[in-house]
Amino acid sequence: MGKNLLKEEIKEIEMPLEMKERVVEKCRNAQLDKKESVNMKNTDKTNVESINTGENNTTGKKPHNSRRKWSRIATVATAVALCLGLGSVTALAATGKLEGFFADVTRWDGAVVGETYEQATEEIEVTAYAEEDVLVVEAVLLKANEAPYFVIENWGIGKYSIQDADGEVVAEGSTAALFKATDGKINMEIFVAELEAGSYTLTITEFTGSAKAEQDLPVKGYWECEFRF
């Protein structure tokens, strides 16, 4: 036919002008908020440092506004104490060293019983290959030195599915074993002896991270890789 109807109709779709302006405006506002929060953090840091070192007190006498300064120190100390009590991941989040989207896991009555890391798709690279009866899943942590990755000691696959060439799910589940990360790389194994020879797609939607004395952290994202068995 030579006529690409799909292209003709999709190319007619345009983003409304007001929507474009809205996106740019919201993006600017988000950046300004971020910049302001950084400035506020820096100001707080400078204040605490000046209190600790006795800066601005050239006379060597007790500062006039010592009551206000001590109340600031008390506030910072309370914040630090609270952070320490919240577990390492939450503590990092509270100090601003942790970025990304953490979601609360709530019980039926609304009580928070844990948390998940939601946006790991671009932060972990996954490849897979079959080796005898085992599917070896290689995960490379692209931000291994950043939270939450450096906190996690052992890894497992929380949710995976294997589809055949027709898209039928032939296996799914999670790995019971835990695997250690070495230099930001983890080699995990899925037992796949029951598969017939052919091409398959492995889909992973969740890894599980665990560390000593910490609650397991589901690390969520979407990864797909093809393999032959």
Partner: peptide, 19 residues
């Protein structure tokens, strides 16, 4: 609501619904 963003909504072959 994909059709709401077409500049010319008179052309509607149904290919987008199928897609």
């Amino acid at each position: 609501d994909i059709y709401a963003y077409k500049t010319d909504d008179s052309k509607n072959s149904g290919i987008l619904d199928a897609l």
